[in-house]
Amino acid sequence: MRRLHPDVRADVDASLVPAPKQRNTEGEREAIKSGKSAEIWPDEPNKAAQKDTDARWTLKIGGKVRHREDDTPLLMIALPVFSYKSHISSDRRYGFMREMAVTSASTADGRFPRHVVSTDNTSCEVWADSAYRSKRNEKWLSDRMLTSRIHRRKPKGKPMPRAIARANAAKSSIRAHVEHVFAHQKNRFGLFIRTIGLARVEAKLTLCNLAYNFNRLIFHERRESMG
């Protein structure tokens, strides 16, 4: 069996993984947010064991931003979601997941490129959407001699320059491959979190990512055997 080297650009992205909703009082929610979850149910250990204090609520805004004729953006629907967030990086040639991290849903995507970008990849290009664009991330990539192919953001209060829009569109055609990973897991695997706590969620997502990589390996081996 030939060895599949991660020798092509790394695509970085994150996706929300829904978890069972928790029904807590206002005081309990505030205590969870402040990190005092161990003090909420001291006399009810059975109840505390069934409470997920690591997942968080966030707003999921999906779909492409659409504009009116005067170039003003249309309103978008925001859905509240109680979930965790799966951060991954994959190489484009083989589609394998190379690195992963798991956080609560409220964690910003841009804080986690250093946890999922590997310098073992012989390609120096890193592709990601505009959520990862920041001076801190650009410096981190530059210090490791990695080339940033991260989308540029729209200037605040100004229309998107055509050159940047075209460049972002070209990047999207490459970066979109990482979305196939999440679609495969959610549609074919039916991925949903039913465990409690970050440690168990991380274990489940690790196994799910391994299962996806095995699927990719089987695909490449079959294609090679068929010539």
Results as ranks from 00 to 15, higher is better:
residue 60 K to C: 09
residue 11 D to Y: 01
residue 88 I to E: 03
residue 65 V to M: 10
residue 150 I to V: 15
residue 125 E to N: 13
residue 46 N to I: 06
residue 19 A to N: 02
residue 10 A to F: 00
residue 159 P to K: 10
residue 100 M to R: 14
residue 200 R to M: 11
residue 220 H to N: 09
residue 94 Y to H: 12
residue 205 L to W: 05
residue 181 V to N: 01
residue 174 I to D: 00
residue 140 W to P: 05
residue 38 A to D: 15
residue 212 Y to R: 12
residue 195 T to G: 03
residue 12 V to Y: 00
residue 179 E to I: 06
residue 152 R to A: 03
residue 97 M to S: 10
residue 213 N to E: 07
residue 202 E to P: 00
residue 188 R to E: 10
residue 151 H to Y: 06
residue 62 G to D: 15
residue 106 S to Q: 10
residue 209 N to P: 05
residue 83 S to K: 02
residue 109 D to C: 02
residue 124 C to E: 14
residue 43 D to R: 14
residue 145 M to D: 13
residue 157 G to T: 09
residue 93 R to Y: 00
residue 132 Y to L: 09
residue 33 K to C: 01
residue 26 E to C: 06
residue 87 H to Q: 11
residue 124 C to R: 15
residue 108 A to D: 11
residue 75 L to W: 03
residue 41 W to I: 03
residue 194 R to Q: 15
residue 88 I to Y: 00
residue 109 D to E: 10
residue 142 S to F: 03
residue 81 V to Q: 11
residue 24 N to G: 04
residue 175 R to M: 08
residue 55 A to S: 08
residue 142 S to L: 13
residue 36 K to L: 13
residue 209 N to R: 10
residue 173 S to A: 05
residue 117 V to N: 01
residue 89 S to H: 03
residue 147 T to H: 04
residue 188 R to F: 13
residue 106 S to V: 12
residue 155 P to H: 00
residue 65 V to N: 05
residue 160 M to L: 15
residue 69 E to Q: 13
residue 221 E to R: 14
residue 95 G to E: 07
residue 156 K to H: 07
residue 71 D to S: 10
residue 172 S to Y: 14
residue 30 E to G: 07
residue 159 P to W: 01
residue 100 M to D: 12
residue 224 E to P: 00
residue 34 S to W: 03
residue 214 F to E: 04
residue 100 M to P: 05
residue 177 H to E: 12
residue 66 R to V: 00
residue 101 A to T: 11
residue 184 H to E: 14
residue 6 P to D: 06
residue 46 N to G: 11
residue 37 S to A: 15
residue 166 R to C: 12
residue 200 R to C: 06
